[in-house]
Amino acid sequence: MNKFNLTQFVVMLTLFIGLILLPHYLRYQHQDFMIFLIINVLVVVSYRLMTLTGEWSLIHIVMMGVGAYTSALMSKHMGVSVWLTIPLAGLSAAVLAGLLSTPLFRMTQFYFLIGSFAVGEAIRLAWIFFIKPFGGSSGISSVPSPELLGIDFMDPIPYYYLVLIVVSLCLWVLYRIEKSRIGLTLNAVHWKAPLAQSVGVNTWKYRTLAFMVASLFVGIAGALKIHYLGNVTPHQFGVGSMVFVLIWVIVGGYNTFYGPIIGAVVLSVLDESLRNLNEYRPAIYGVLLIISIMFMPKGLEHISQGLKDWIKTAKSSS
């Protein structure tokens, strides 16, 4: 439906070429950083699909964990090839999301937020409690990494390309969904659920669909993460990590497809550059979060617009 846009195309192309060349110019620790950043981009973009329906869940990161645990258990204990367990990880998260949607979507808004948190936390406690097969608090270690045609994906550079390809494909799919009539219907469910219902939209079905698709992709992200790390623990998927996803999405802005990506990239780079502040970094996040809510409620994506308005009101009130 969109017209071909030359500038957009050039920007995308440059970005892509840059991303392909980048790892060769980075130090080891920054290669790691890039791998996790790209995975986190998939986490926030899939989360945004969920928020399109207007429901904010706190179970997204736990769904990432569901994918991670599925992939780890299958590849380590059942000997299934990692190439198969990564998509299966997404599938298992989607199926679980489908099962959970029946109780969860009997709640909306605040109740859904808290309900999704409670269910997620209960799942996480199950990983801690059932040492067999989940390994308890220490989780599962020595998770195998993928291998293909003699390329060892333990190395950051091949793994970087693997992640880049998988995430790009996933983003393309998520983008297509959002720009399709399904995306339009999800939006409609968000803005005016009663109006959407009154023209025949089954809001429950569309909320479930968004939840399942979001879980599918975050499950894949979870598998990508732990096959690089080599271990999976319940603490990787705690409410703290969920809060970071919320911050990225909100600071970046959740009204556009690229807003959450900007949020994740900008804040992660900032975080990395403040590395020597160690455990005091969360305060920076806290301040940023409050500033973004108070002064640019639509996120970084709207920062230029926000600045203009701010100057305008400052002028008119003086």
Binding site: R176, I177, S180, R181, I182, L184, K192, V201, V213
Partner: peptide, 30 residues
């Protein structure tokens, strides 16, 4: 006036066409 205020007029009516022409996930993707 209950409308989908953030959507265009055309998109508003398109949502109304939901029953007329519902798309499934695969159609949307490909």
């Amino acid at each position: 006036t209950t409308l989908f205020q953030e959507l265009t007029v055309f998109e508003n009516v398109l949502v109304g066409c939901h029953l007329e022409a519902e798309v499934n996930l695969l159609d949307a993707l490909f």
